[in-house]
Amino acid sequence: MAEAATPGPGGRPWTLYRGYAVLLLPPGLFLAVFFLWPLIRVVLRSLLEPHPGLANYGRVFGEAAFARALSNTIETAGVVTVLCLVIAYPLAYAIARADGRRLKLFMIFVLVPLWTSAVIRSFGWMIVFQRQGVLNDLLLALGITHSRLTLLPGSLAVHVGMVHIMLPFMILPLIAGMRGIDLNLMRAADVLGAPPRRRFLEIFLPLSLPGVSAGVALVFMTSLGFFITPALLGGARHTMAAVLIEEEANVQLDWPLASALATTLLIVTTVLYLVYLRLMRRSLPLIGR
């Protein structure tokens, strides 16, 4: 974005670039008014009410529950992101190489789950995971277990429920990234004698990483704000930061404290994201250019 606004390399006329920058104005204004300004107000409220100072943050950091909820949230989002990546990568690889009717069919399979709300899908997973549920029936019938397992509430249910919801958000950027890879490079490597494994590891994988980067960021950030799925499938230990923020904002009506909690979550998220970008950039000079 910044590049578009500054004069381009090679002394090309800058007016063209300024023309592009104008296109950024409507969304920029929209975000400034409806996102940035409210966000600034949230931060200000956490610092100014009921009295100017850091008292609200004192409460956030003084209470073990908030720190625990925050670490639960990050851990859960992290596990979900890794699982999504592991499942989505081969799938996206297959879809990216398909075309025509098969590509459309695959895309429909990826997109259809998005049409059902997260609440309904979470209730669906309750029916799968409960003691008298489908999964227990199956395990017993196959002789894998001999008594019914208590899976609800539990981490397995939370992770499966969340991965199910987040998977399309990993698959789509991966496909976009993979379809942009010039397969002639693979052919060239083949001609030059590189075995399949090496072609994948040294050409395809590095070139697919921008897609991975986008998918990981998208899934991780969204998972941090998850609310209903951990509430329905998780137990006491799955108290997420969003649940506590909602409680303070909507039930206690303590907006200064809710603002401080939200700001803390935002700062932690931003720091994690910056660290992640840095690591990606260091290991892969291709990204970020």
Partner: peptide, 19 residues
């Protein structure tokens, strides 16, 4: 031995299904 539920619809479901 506590099953913590959060929503009214949820408690009806876990009770009816014998969870």
């Amino acid at each position: 031995s506590i099953y913590w539920w959060e929503r009214g619809a949820q408690v009806a479901q876990i009770l009816i299904d014998g969870e």
